[in-house]
Write a protein that binds this DNA or RNA. Structure first.
Lengths: 200, 200
DNA sequence: AAATGTACAAAAAATGATTATTGTTCATTG
DNA sequence: CAATGAACAATAATCATTTTTTGTACATTT
């Protein structure tokens, strides 16, 4: 079993420089060639390390690829979270998440992989596992909004979190579902309606 | 240009028996072999017609495949719509759409294609075009709910339709987004909360 | 007229031989 | 002891070749 084993409960050690060197090289290769066309020998060459070391830290190529995307997602999530804490309302927070979520998906490794291997990206986006980490960021924001009286205390935090995640994922994935929601202003007005008032 | 040409405005003529014979054969082949492994010669053999006739009605293989899925979606949609008109509230209607939507996607051609060519199904599900036809069914139900006082008249019909579609698509695609929403009862309670009351 | 069936070149897929990569092991290095 | 690099069988990718399929045209049949 590899050292940097990662599962849903035990996340990777991003403080280990070796792990980061491997992931840096792997991300660079995936970014340039796509997943299918990156050989671990190439990753080793780019990272100036041995292929044996890669296998010491990751079970196999699939685990390495997953590690690359998890770290990248973690980075985006932390960046977004840092912006969220400065925003006053839950609606502002979800709006920001949607706008920056779209930006993140249109950049870097996600965007380049969407060009070379769109089916792979599509499969990732349809795995609910992909959103697990994001889900865990919302409950504190929901509770703050409840304490501030923005949303009702009667609503279960898990229900509110699920609802917010569904809205955010849907709006990032589909800019248009009948309505075209492209501008920050339009997204904010829409979210204000459906989150704070619903349709009732 | 083929006879049964189909675009977003001009839908296919499902009353033409030739069109249906071709689509029946094509659906049967796709169901059994997947898209990649169905040759139009095989479709012709199964449908007991000539390959020339297929090209008379469909521009190319891609158009035929699209035709198969559009007809199947149209069938499911009409079936669902027939059930919806009997339901009293908008919440009941969305609940039913989610439950039957999940059933439809777990059956027949969608389910079999998801086994043999999951990436193709994933790509379909992420095209917002895939949901266009479904979107057009909702505005009358939204207006009825407004007239009945279930939801506010102040909310724009397009906004409400978009919101309902996003909820339905999300719930069909992801049974679990933090909350596990599997039972009809659970789905209904959730939708009742977020549609009629929101989080406010 | 509509459907068929044949012919045909271009494109795509199956095939099989060849080469590269993966995943494992272990002796060697720093 | 972590990292390296080499050896190795098993697996997967690549490539040139053969075969099938596609898409078009048109003469023939119903």
């Amino acid at each position: 079993m590899a050292v940097a084993r990662q599962d849903q409960f035990n996340s990777m050690d991003y403080s280990d420089p070796m792990v980061n060197r491997i992931l840096d090289a792997a991300e660079q290769c995936i970014h340039r060639f796509g997943i299918r066309r990156t050989a671990l020998g190439e990753v080793a060459r780019v990272g100036k390390l041995s292929r044996g070391s890669i296998y010491r830290y990751f079970d196999d190529k699939a685990a390495l690829v997953q590690g690359v995307f998890w770290r990248r997602q973690e980075f985006y999530l932390n960046q977004t979270e840092a912006a969220l804490v400065k925003l006053p309302t839950l609606v502002d927070k979800v709006t920001h998440s949607v706008v920056s979520g779209r930006k993140d998906m249109a950049q870097g490794i996600f965007a380049s992989l969407a060009e070379t291997e769109p089916e792979t990206v599509a499969m990732m986006f349809l795995e609910s596992k992909f959103y697990q980490r994001s889900v865990s960021f919302w409950p504190p924001h929901v509770r703050l909004a409840q304490e501030a009286g923005e949303i009702s205390e009667a609503v279960d935090v898990a229900v509110a979190t699920d609802f917010i995640m569904r809205l955010a994922v849907s709006l990032v994935t589909f800019p248009d579902m009948g309505l075209s929601l492209k501008s920050r202003k339009g997204i904010r007005a829409y979210l204000d309606q459906v989150i704070t008032r619903g349709l009732g």
